[in-house]
Structure formats: structure tokens, C-alpha cells
């Protein structure tokens, strides 16, 4: 399987939008002519690309957006639920502190109990790992693979949503 086989849908997407240079378009056609597997897939992939496109943004959508006056700044808006976020985070922090505080006593009943300050600090580290925030804030800092096409295609949702930063807090 060549590199073009692994990028076929992307090349069709670029051709659909007129982004493919004439040279790349010729290369794509040449690849299709010589690759039965891609020829077989071509029609299906192009049908999907056509079917998943949304209609252009409507005037109604733009008007609704403008009327919201989002740019005037954050303020409590009941319907958005956005201001629930700090409360949820605080609840999660409290739960984590309690969990970490209790664990040492149950695991090491004969040993010394960790001081409260230490336990709280550990909980804080778990909740606000600097590295995790860095990776979520700045995708270029994530450990994705290089340019060899061998990307991880397994479900990596946990790395973002499992962090609890935003993913699963929606009401």
C-alpha cells in the first residue's frame, strides 16, 4: 500500500474544493489507474464526502450569533450552562482530596497516616498536572507520531476527555 492509498480521501477532498494542483491531480489519476484497490474505494469515499458536507451558514444562524453579543464579555447566561464549570471543578477537587486523604489509612493501616498537607498537595497534583494542561493547551506539545504515516488510529479520546478539563463536564 503506497502513501497515496493512505491519503486517498484527503486527495479527493482537496480536488473537490479545487485545492489540488494540476500536477497533483494528474498524479492522483495516475495512481487510480494503477491501483485497483483505490479504484474500488473511490466512488464510496467520494459519496461520503458529498453526503457529510453541511449547507452554507444561513442568515438566521449569523443573526442568532450576532444577537448573542458574545464579544461583550463573559457573564452568567443561564441557558449556556457555562458557569456551572467552576462549581463542577470544585466538587471534583473536593472529592479527590477526600479520596486521597482516606486511601493511605485504608491501605496501610499499620503504618503512619500521611499528613493532611501532603495528601492535599497530592490531590492538587492529580487535578492540575502541568504537563497534562500543556498538552491540552498546545497540541504541538503532544506526542503524536512523525511524518511516516504510521499514526495511532486507536481511540485516544481519553487523553482529552478523560482529563476532565472540558470534555465530560457538559450538563
Amino acid at each position: 500500500m503506497s502513501t497515496d492509498c493512505e491519503r486517498l480521501a484527503a486527495l479527493f477532498s482537496e480536488r473537490r474544493r479545487g485545492e489540488l494542483s494540476s500536477e497533483d491531480a494528474r498524479a492522483l489519476d495516475a495512481h487510480l489507474a494503477g491501483c485497483p484497490r483505490c479504484r474500488e474505494e473511490a466512488a464510496g469515499l467520494q459519496s461520503v464526502l458529498a453526503a457529510v458536507e453541511l449547507p452554507p451558514v444561513s442568515i438566521q444562524e449569523l443573526e442568532a450569533l450576532q444577537s448573542r453579543r458574545i464579544g461583550e464579555g463573559p457573564r452568567p447566561v443561564a441557558r449556556s450552562g457555562a458557569w456551572k464549570l467552576p462549581a463542577v471543578l470544585m466538587a471534583a477537587a473536593a472529592a479527590a482530596v477526600l479520596t486521597v486523604s482516606v486511601r493511605p489509612a485504608s491501605r496501610h493501616q499499620a503504618g503512619p497516616v500521611a499528613p493532611l498537607e501532603t495528601a492535599a498537595a497530592s490531590a492538587g497534583d492529580e487535578l492540575l498536572p502541568e504537563d497534562a494542561y500543556s498538552q491540552e493547551l498546545f497540541p504541538e506539545m503532544t506526542s503524536d507520531t512523525g511524518d511516516d504515516g504510521q499514526v495511532s488510529l486507536e481511540d485516544d479520546a481519553l487523553s482529552l476527555e478523560g482529563s476532565g478539563l472540558f470534555g465530560n463536564l457538559d450538563g
Binding site: 480521501a9 464510496g44 461520503v48 503532544t142 503524536d144 511524518d147 499514526v151
Partner: peptide, 20 residues
């Protein structure tokens, strides 16, 4: 996304295949 362009295209290809 902080990935290479080729990487983005490969992810896109597999996304469209899975959608199909």
C-alpha cells in the same frame, strides 16, 4: 492539531473510510 500535514491527511482518510 500540532501534527504533520501528511499525518492529518492519513487521519482524514481513515475517518472517511470509517464513516463509509
Amino acid at each position: 492539531l500540532g501534527i504533520t500535514e501528511n499525518n492529518a491527511k492519513v487521519h482524514f482518510h481513515h475517518a472517511v473510510r470509517r464513516l463509509r
